[in-house]
Amino acid sequence: MDENRDLRLERNAFGRLVLTAADGAVHDGVLPVRAFPIAAPDEGVSIVGADGRELHWIERLSALPPSPRALLEAELASREFMPTILQISAVSTFSTPSSWTVETDRGSTSFVLKGEEDIRRLGNGALLIVDSHGIQFLVRDRLALDRRSKKLLERFL
């Protein structure tokens, strides 16, 4: 039995997501939340109501029909701003706090790293770097970075 086959999800006049449950109950202002946004972004998405309670569980986004999948993917993309660092261009100092200039999948940017504890190892060479404003930057595979970027990064690991 496929619980997601009849998933009714749409946007209201204000652009908020509305879920109509199997019992006909309408839930306005629902939000999708990934269980594993980095490790398994296609797996485990919860649709929660305005009160934070789970209303619906989705095992795989890719298994959804095209219409609700597109709505969920658009909503997730707007909520999950996490640029991927492709190259580290410069670091102001090798002590913290330090200013970093990086190239991301969304363009060039600079940020301040408050401390080495703001660089978290995620496994498989991935890193999560949190800047002084709480913005998260992802390094998918630190070993795949160019030589200069790896050398700059190693000073902080």
Rank of each mutant, 00 (worst) to 15 (best):
residue 13 A to M: 12
residue 13 A to Q: 15
residue 13 A to H: 13
residue 13 A to W: 06
residue 14 F to Y: 11
residue 14 F to V: 12
residue 15 G to M: 01
residue 15 G to S: 04
residue 16 R to Y: 05
residue 16 R to A: 14
residue 16 R to E: 14
residue 17 L to E: 00
residue 17 L to A: 04
residue 17 L to V: 08
residue 17 L to T: 07
residue 18 V to P: 07
residue 18 V to T: 05
residue 18 V to E: 07
residue 18 V to I: 12
residue 19 L to C: 08
residue 19 L to F: 13
residue 20 T to Y: 01
residue 20 T to K: 11
residue 20 T to M: 06
residue 20 T to F: 03
residue 20 T to N: 02
residue 21 A to S: 13
residue 22 A to W: 14
residue 22 A to N: 11
residue 22 A to T: 13
residue 22 A to C: 09
residue 22 A to V: 13
residue 23 D to K: 15
residue 23 D to M: 14
residue 24 G to H: 05
residue 24 G to W: 02
residue 24 G to E: 01
residue 24 G to L: 01
residue 25 A to L: 10
residue 25 A to Q: 14
residue 26 V to I: 15
residue 26 V to C: 05
residue 27 H to Y: 14
residue 27 H to C: 10
residue 28 D to N: 13
residue 28 D to T: 03
residue 28 D to F: 11
residue 28 D to H: 14
residue 29 G to F: 09
residue 29 G to A: 04
residue 30 V to S: 01
residue 30 V to N: 03
residue 31 L to K: 13
residue 31 L to W: 05
residue 31 L to Q: 11
residue 32 P to W: 02
residue 33 V to D: 07
residue 33 V to P: 03
residue 34 R to C: 05
residue 34 R to E: 06
residue 34 R to Y: 04
residue 35 A to F: 00
residue 35 A to H: 09
residue 35 A to W: 01
residue 36 F to G: 00
residue 37 P to I: 09
residue 37 P to Q: 09
residue 37 P to R: 13
residue 37 P to N: 09
residue 37 P to V: 07
residue 38 I to H: 03
residue 38 I to D: 04
residue 38 I to Q: 01
residue 38 I to R: 03
residue 38 I to A: 02
residue 39 A to I: 13
residue 39 A to P: 00
residue 39 A to Y: 13
residue 40 A to H: 14
residue 40 A to S: 12
residue 41 P to H: 07
residue 41 P to V: 08
residue 41 P to D: 02
residue 41 P to N: 09
residue 41 P to M: 06
residue 42 D to R: 03
residue 43 E to V: 15
residue 44 G to M: 07
residue 45 V to G: 01
residue 45 V to A: 01
residue 45 V to C: 03
residue 46 S to R: 08
residue 47 I to F: 02
residue 47 I to R: 02
residue 47 I to V: 14
residue 47 I to T: 05
residue 47 I to K: 05
residue 47 I to C: 04
residue 48 V to H: 05
residue 49 G to Q: 08
residue 49 G to S: 13
residue 49 G to R: 09
residue 49 G to K: 08
residue 49 G to L: 08
residue 50 A to F: 02
residue 50 A to L: 11
residue 50 A to E: 13
residue 50 A to K: 14
residue 51 D to E: 12
residue 52 G to T: 12
residue 52 G to A: 05
residue 52 G to R: 10
residue 53 R to T: 07
residue 53 R to P: 00
residue 53 R to F: 04
residue 53 R to S: 11
residue 53 R to C: 06
residue 53 R to K: 12
residue 54 E to F: 00
residue 54 E to Y: 00
residue 54 E to T: 15
residue 55 L to D: 05
residue 55 L to V: 03
residue 55 L to N: 10
residue 55 L to A: 08
residue 55 L to E: 04
residue 55 L to H: 10
residue 56 H to E: 09
residue 56 H to S: 04
residue 57 W to M: 10
residue 57 W to S: 14
residue 58 I to A: 01
residue 58 I to Y: 05
residue 58 I to T: 10
residue 59 E to G: 06
residue 59 E to R: 15
residue 59 E to K: 13
residue 60 R to M: 10
residue 61 L to D: 09
residue 61 L to H: 11
residue 61 L to K: 09
residue 61 L to Y: 12
residue 62 S to E: 08
residue 63 A to K: 11
residue 64 L to G: 05
residue 64 L to S: 03
residue 64 L to F: 12
residue 65 P to V: 06
residue 65 P to S: 11
residue 66 P to E: 07
residue 67 S to A: 15
residue 67 S to H: 15
residue 67 S to Q: 12
residue 67 S to L: 06
residue 67 S to W: 03
residue 67 S to Y: 10
residue 69 R to N: 06
residue 70 A to T: 11
